[in-house]
Design a protein around this nucleic acid. Structure first.
Length: 492
RNA sequence: CGGGAGGUAGUUCAGCCCGGUAGAAUACCUGGUUUGGGACCAGGGGGUCGCAGGUUCGAAUCCUGUCCUCCCGACCA
């Protein structure tokens, strides 16, 4: 027997864990809250990273790298930001171990190697970066600075979940400096567009672009923009954020520039990031009870060819033909694998590649070869078709585009069906409990009401959509006047 | 961080209550038969029972501590 996956209806959380582990995306590790990203999962991340990196460069950004450690004094310089992260920071206090005199072969922290100043392991890099920018910026001619870094960060989470929330994770963080407020806001909005474009066109995950409320805003930001996605269980997932930081960090780190009139002013800032959490969202947006379903544009493998044969003669004839095909596929830029290993039979391979979410499977046996055909199976719909070998690579190139589009269309339809208006408290609660998804409801605009609703329903305001329609109404909880609906949901 | 569950072969698990030479299935290796949806037969290798102490003539089993994982909760820009 092979690997069994818990079904979504039986236990959604277990289904998610089974998928990650059994498809080979990641593993648990010996370190609390930290996971191992396995080669298959990392190949997926590399594809995502490469595409995002290309998009960042296309919008004028360059990459750099800043230290993992942040001296505590720098970290605390921007108070709100420091407070926001204080509870989840790992801190380095010593720089040396020594042999335990009481217990040979064991090591202890050398009490004489205590650091004069503790080092915070970065939960984000604003502090160390703004401390550095101070030395880079003197006049408006030094601006804008459009820097991104690919890095790991550490946030000491109490409860972790593979990809969605781990103590250490991989991400990119863009940190930009601008001469004007307007330019910084445009930058924050531009990067939100980049994230939305990437999510929808590469991950095939539809997202809602919006603004966070004051309660949900990044500590240290003036405004937090976000993209929110919807998972199959009806819970929302924040998939990316972009912050307009105002002059908060410039003031905290004393970063001033002289403008054209030689007047000194503080620099305007943004920061924006997406992380390996996107992989968790990707898994939960598309996959089914048979395994992962990956969108072709970022799937590590787009096509797998499984040969079917009774003996070496048949195997050889098939391999001959397939080797030709494989080079044609590669010329079209398709990521393909010919699985001619002998240690598993075709049926086993079919199930395995379905588990791994490979978008297209091609099976070729003696009968196909005689007819110059192949059996093509698509992962998203499970449909099988016989296709001529003559135009197979071109056929599949088109099919991959079709699958990409189909995944997005399906996810978008699900998402759209799960944005529901509620005008009474009873409806509101009932929708959250029974249907899930986003509930569009009026809100009086206060943090107190938001907190109260969270306490009562566990739902938070995911965002105020950017293109939100203005309409008069009354708050779902307090009945006070409201000018627009906001999106509530239970979230990861 | 609180409550619950768990950790024994690569994997899934039995054995633990009631201490006495560590088991099954599957995977793996060899040979053979097979191969169009998770093959079969025969033979074989593989585990300091999470780790560290303790009790005992003897510990996977009892006791204490500790680490890791899962679920629920609190927390989580």
């Amino acid at each position: 027997m092979g690997k069994e996956i818990t079904s979504r209806s039986q236990d959604y959380a277990q289904w998610y864990n089974d998928l990650i582990l059994k498809s080979g995306l990641a593993d648990y590790s010996a370190v609390r809250g930290c996971m191992v990203i396995k080669p298959y999962g990392f190949a997926l991340w590399e594809n995502m990273r490469d595409e995002l990196d290309r998009m960042f460069k296309d919008t004028g950004h360059v990459n750099a790298y800043f230290p993992l450690f942040v001296p505590k004094s720098l970290f605390e310089a921007e108070e709100k930001n420091a407070e926001g992260f204080a509870k989840e920071c790992a801190v380095v206090t010593h720089y040396r171990l020594k042999t335990d005199p009481e217990n040979k072969g064991k090591l202890i922290v050398d009490p004489e190697a205590k650091l004069e100043e503790e080092l915070v392991v970065r939960p984000t890099s604003e502090a160390i970066i703004w401390n550095t920018y101070k030395g880079w910026i003197q006049s408006y001619r030094d601006l804008p600075i459009l820097v991104n870094q690919w890095a790991n960060v550490v946030r000491w989470e109490m409860r972790t979940r593979l990809f969605l929330r781990t103590a250490e994770f991989l991400w990119q963080e863009g940190h930009t400096a601008h001469a004007t407020k307007e330019e910084a806001i445009i930058e924050a909005e531009k990067m939100l567009e980049v994230y939305a474009d990437f999510a929808e066109n590469f991950m095939a995950v539809p997202v809602i672009k919006g603004l966070k409320t004051a309660n949900e805003r990044f500590a240290g930001a003036e405004e937090t923009y976000c993209i929110e996605a919807l998972m199959q269980d009806g819970k929302a997932l924040q998939a990316g954020t972009s912050h307009f930081l105002g002059q908060n960090f410039a003031k905290a780190f004393d970063v001033k520039f002289s403008d054209k009139t030689n007047t000194l002013d503080y620099v305007w800032a943004t920061s924006w990031g997406v992380s390996t959490r996107l992989i968790g969202g990707l898994v939960m947006a598309h996959s089914d009870d048979d395994g992962l379903i990956l969108p072709p544009k970022i799937a590590p493998l787009q096509v797998v060819i499984v040969p079917i044969y009774k003996n070496d003669v048949e195997k050889g004839a098939i391999a001959n033909k397939v080797h030709q095909l494989v080079s044609e596929f590669k010329q079209l830029g398709i990521r393909i694998k010919f699985d001619d290993t002998d240690n598993a039979r075709p049926g086993w391979k079919f199930a395995e590649y379905e588990m791994k979410g490979v978008p297209v499977r091609v099976a070729i046996g003696p009968r196909d070869l005689a007819n110059n055909m192949a059996e093509v199976a698509r992962r998203d719909t499970k449909e099988k078709l016989s296709v001529s070998l003559d135009n197979l690579p071109y056929y599949i190139k088109t099919l991959l585009d079709e699958i990409q589009l189909n995944l997005f269309t399906k996810a978008k339809q699900f998402r759209d069906e799960h944005i529901t208006k509620a005008d009474t408290w009873d409806d509101f609660v009932k929708l959250l409990d029974e249907k899930g998804g986003f509930v569009a409801a009026h809100w009086d605009g206060t943090g107190e009401t938001e907190d109260k609703i969270k306490e009562l329903t566990k739902a938070t305001i995911r965002c105020i959509p950017l293109d939100n329609k203005q309409e008069d109404g009354t708050c779902i909880l307090t009945g006070k006047p409201s000018i627009q609906r906001v999106l509530f949901a239970r979230a990861y």
